[in-house]
């Protein structure tokens, strides 16, 4: 615990802690909010936190962007996390669009995008089906 009192340690790890807070905020929105669109925004925040973790792992103090310059002694930041995250962002928007499309279809069928109301409608539907099945089987046994 001594390390937590050392300012250089705290400053060097502050970014990780902020990214944990951001990630947990996203997770909280996904878990605690019932609106489907808001859940998708929450997932995006969660995703942004992961992106930041990767990019901050690639940063080199005193380094520059990984585009080669004429100066041979130049220090560059690590290009590998940049590549991974660059493609992840575009894949992220494509999957977000898929989620939004699902939300739109759910809204057309159920008339709402609130999770609790959708579960309620599903519940009523099941009860109605069970009642119908029970009624027909009672009729069958009466006929027999």
């Amino acid at each position: 615990m001594d390390r937590l009192l050392d300012p250089s340690f705290v400053l060097g790890h502050m970014n990780y802690w902020l990214f944990v807070v951001l990630m947990m905020t996203g997770l909280y929105i996904v878990v605690a909010r019932g609106n489907l669109l808001k859940k998708i925004v929450g997932l995006n925040i969660f995703q942004a936190a992961v992106f930041m973790l990767y990019i901050s792992a690639g940063k080199v103090r005193g380094g520059t962007a990984p585009i080669l310059t004429d100066n041979p002694g130049e220090a560059y930041s690590n290009p590998l996390p940049h590549v991974l995250i660059l493609t992840a962002i575009v894949v992220g928007i494509a999957t977000t669009a898929l989620g939004l499309a699902l939300t739109t279809r759910i809204n057309e069928v159920y008339g709402t995008i609130e999770e609790d109301e959708i579960l309620e409608i599903d519940h009523q539907e099941t009860e109605r089906e069970v009642a119908a099945i029970l009624a027909t089987s009672a009729q069958d046994s009466a006929n027999a």
Binding site: V90, I93, A94, A97, L100, A101, T104
Partner: peptide, 16 residues
């Protein structure tokens, strides 16, 4: 590929 996918997604949403 990215151009066409983004435009197709926009069409799909905007056509509703």
């Amino acid at each position: 590929a990215v151009f066409a996918v983004m435009l197709a997604i926009y069409y799909a949403f905007a056509a509703r």
